[in-house]
C-alpha cells in the first residue's frame, strides 16, 4: 500500500490524539463552566494526594493584594509519583501558575487545565536534565 507522507503523518498524529479526547473518571465538561475562565497564581497551601483526582490547594493572589483559598483539580496521584513528584517536592510554599475554568457550582474550585511553575516550566518536568524534578540541571528551575 502506498501511503503519502503527509497523510501518514496525519494518521500517526491522529493515533495520539485520543489522549485528549478520551474518557475519564468524570467529564470535566460536566463539572466546569466554559464561561468562567480564570488564571490562578499563588503558593501551594496543601495537596490532597487522592486517586482518581489530586486536589492542589492554592492561596490565589487577588488584584487587591489579598489572597483567596482555591482548589485545583488534576489527575491521579500515581502519575505525579511516577514523575518523581511527591509530598517533598510539591509542598506548601511552591509558587504555581494555573489556567483553567471555575466549577459550575461557583465555589472556589477550578480544573488544572495547565499547571506550571512561575517560570513557565511545566510542573511535571521541572528539569530538562535527568527528568527528575529540580536536580539542578535546568538553569530556569526554582532552587530547592
Amino acid at each position: 500500500m502506498i501511503v503519502k507522507r503527509q497523510n501518514l503523518t496525519i494518521a500517526l498524529v491522529a493515533m495520539l490524539m485520543p489522549i485528549s479526547s478520551a474518557q475519564a473518571h468524570h467529564a470535566f465538561g460536566a463539572e466546569f463552566d466554559p464561561n468562567r475562565p480564570l488564571l490562578i497564581k499563588g503558593e501551594v497551601i496543601k495537596v490532597e494526594w487522592v486517586n482518581p483526582h489530586a486536589w492542589i490547594h492554592i492561596a490565589r493572589e487577588m488584584e487587591d493584594g489579598t489572597t483567596e483559598s482555591w482548589m485545583v483539580e488534576g489527575g491521579t496521584p500515581n502519575t505525579l509519583l511516577r514523575r518523581g513528584i511527591n509530598r517533598d517536592s510539591l509542598k506548601p510554599g511552591i509558587y504555581l501558575v494555573v489556567d483553567g475554568y471555575q466549577s459550575k457550582d461557583r465555589s472556589n474550585r477550578a480544573n488544572g487545565r495547565n499547571i506550571t511553575y512561575s517560570d513557565g516550566t511545566t510542573l511535571f518536568l521541572g528539569s530538562s536534565g535527568t527528568g527528575a524534578p529540580r536536580d539542578g540541571a535546568d538553569p530556569r528551575e526554582r532552587p530547592r
Partner: peptide
C-alpha cells in the same frame, strides 16, 4: 471528549 470544552488533561 471528557475534557469537554474546558480542557484539563
Amino acid at each position: 471528549g471528557a475534557a469537554g470544552n474546558v480542557g484539563g488533561y
